[in-house]
């Protein structure tokens, strides 16, 4: 992508994100949002996050897919357990990256 295109994409996303952030505070004033819309919005975070995470773990690495050579599968499961029990970004990054490197080292 050209430099101009990259900056255009970033500015459009920035502007759009700002409007999303301003939407409720500005349009509602002191009121509240329609119940149906709020209900749907509640499920955006869990749905979006797993839609990012799962393919990134399965297909993100150099040996993507469901195979024994894909170190990210096991490292991803370990990281998920760490995330669930500690809720700590630091611990999950440390143990997740650590186990990825260890498994890669054992495989090659």
């Amino acid at each position: 992508m050209s430099t101009t295109a990259v900056w255009t994409v970033i500015v459009v996303i920035g502007l759009g994100t700002f409007l999303l952030r301003l939407s409720g505070i500005h349009l509602l004033g002191g009121g509240s949002m329609p119940e149906g819309l709020m209900r749907a919005l509640r499920y955006v975070p869990p749905a979006v996050i797993t839609a990012i995470v799962v393919p990134a773990i399965v297909y993100g690495g150099p040996d993507g897919g469901f195979s024994l050579h894909n170190a990210r599968l096991l490292a991803g499961v370990i990281a998920a357990v760490v995330a669930w029990t500690t809720r700590s970004v630091l611990a999950t990054l440390g143990l997740g990256m650590g186990s990825l490197w260890l498994i890669e080292w054992l495989l090659h």
Partner: peptide, 27 residues
């Protein structure tokens, strides 16, 4: 580019929920 923009805004859609729920306090 269009797909990148749509995907990013979809990820940030949760901000509408945050913004709406802060409205009674900051609106």
């Amino acid at each position: 580019p269009m797909i990148i923009i749509l995907t990013a805004l979809l990820i940030n859609l949760r901000m509408v929920m945050y913004s709406a729920s802060l409205a009674p306090h900051l609106g």
